[in-house]
Computed example of a mutant assay.
Amino acid sequence: MARNLRTIAFDADDTLWHNERFFSLTQARFAELLADHAERDHLDARLLAAERRNIGHYGFGVKGFTLSMIETAIEVTDGRVPASVISELLAAGRDMLDHPIELLPHAREAVEAVAPSHHLLLITKGDLLHQERKLAQSGLGDLFDGVEIVSDKAPDTYARIFGAAPGGAEGAMMVGNSMKSDVRPAIAVGGWGVHVPHDLAWALEHAEAPEDSPRFRSLSDLSGLAALVDEIG
């Protein structure tokens, strides 16, 4: 019997390993450094606005986040931010880049369970060198048949990647923590979208669940993935 699913793609950050927690910790430190110049809520809003403006220039990831913190620090201090604060923000960014990978619960087991029977892809966005380093540290790299590090995750991204994969888009499933970047665009091109929520989510990744789509599924964690794949067939 032919399989309905031939390709399974995974998101990386906050799907297979922790990521957003390090951004949250660094943002809290950022607020401490600038506490004399802005309240936390105001500072968070200014930083988010800077990140939104800068995605097109810097892309996703730690480097863009660090530059957005520096830009926001300059703005809220009217250009009077001490060099020592800039230095601390740069150091915080380097610490984020150097932080060891911590796999999420059931990540390894979920990938290993479907690897023998399906074409596996990793589809992630962010800085190329950082994402490659994280994948190497994760110990999961050898389980994937292909790795795509992309500048954004839009429907045309999935159309290109799934179009070249076994089974095409209709035979592909995307597993990730983001409705906006993982689930909705994969479904939009004819694939399956599986949402695995994470406790922390970046505000720019929020989107409504496509509840009316027959190709939408949700799991509380990755422990249920193998059974879902078997159910779909």
Rank of each mutant, 00 (worst) to 15 (best):
V62C: 15
F60R: 04
I70M: 14
M1L: 11
N19E: 11
G141H: 08
S117V: 00
E211A: 10
T157V: 04
E148K: 12
A165D: 10
A92K: 05
V196A: 09
S181Y: 05
S87V: 09
A110M: 03
A154R: 15
R217W: 10
T26M: 07
S138M: 02
V81R: 05
A207E: 14
E51C: 03
H42W: 14
D98Q: 15
L33A: 03
L129R: 15
P166Q: 12
P155Y: 02
S178V: 01
E112A: 08
L97C: 14
D11F: 06
A226N: 01
Y58K: 09
P155N: 07
K180L: 07
A45P: 08
D44I: 01
M96I: 04
A107I: 00
E208I: 04
A12S: 13
R108A: 11
S138A: 03
D152F: 11
R133K: 15
D78M: 12
N4G: 07
G167M: 04
G167F: 05
A201E: 10
L90A: 12
E205L: 05
E88H: 06
H118I: 00
E20I: 03
Y158Q: 14
I86K: 13
I161R: 09
E112S: 07
D182W: 03
V189N: 15
Y158P: 12
L143C: 06
W192A: 07
S223Y: 03
S138H: 02
R21C: 09
I70W: 10
A73C: 08
V85Q: 06
L25Q: 15
P185A: 07
S117D: 01
S178A: 06
A28I: 09
R184A: 15
I123N: 05
A169V: 14
H198T: 01
G141L: 15
A115E: 01
G176K: 07
H57Q: 13
G146K: 15
V189I: 12
P214S: 00
F144R: 14
G139F: 01
G193N: 08
I123W: 09
E39H: 14
V194Q: 00
D142G: 11
E39S: 12
A2F: 02
D142Y: 11
I8L: 00
D230Y: 02
A38I: 00
T124Y: 05
H195L: 01
G224M: 02
A115S: 10
S138P: 04
V114R: 04
P185H: 02
P155H: 03
H18L: 10
G167N: 03
M1A: 14
G61R: 04
W202C: 09
D36Q: 10
I70G: 05
M174R: 15
A12L: 05
H42S: 12
L120F: 01
A115L: 04
P197F: 02
L48A: 06
H106A: 12
T26R: 07
D95M: 06
G93E: 11
Y58L: 09
R215E: 10
R184M: 11
L129S: 13
L90C: 13
P210F: 01
R94D: 14
A207K: 01
E39C: 12
G146A: 13
A209P: 03
T72A: 01
L104S: 07
F162H: 13
G224H: 00
L140T: 03
L143V: 00
G233L: 05
F22G: 14
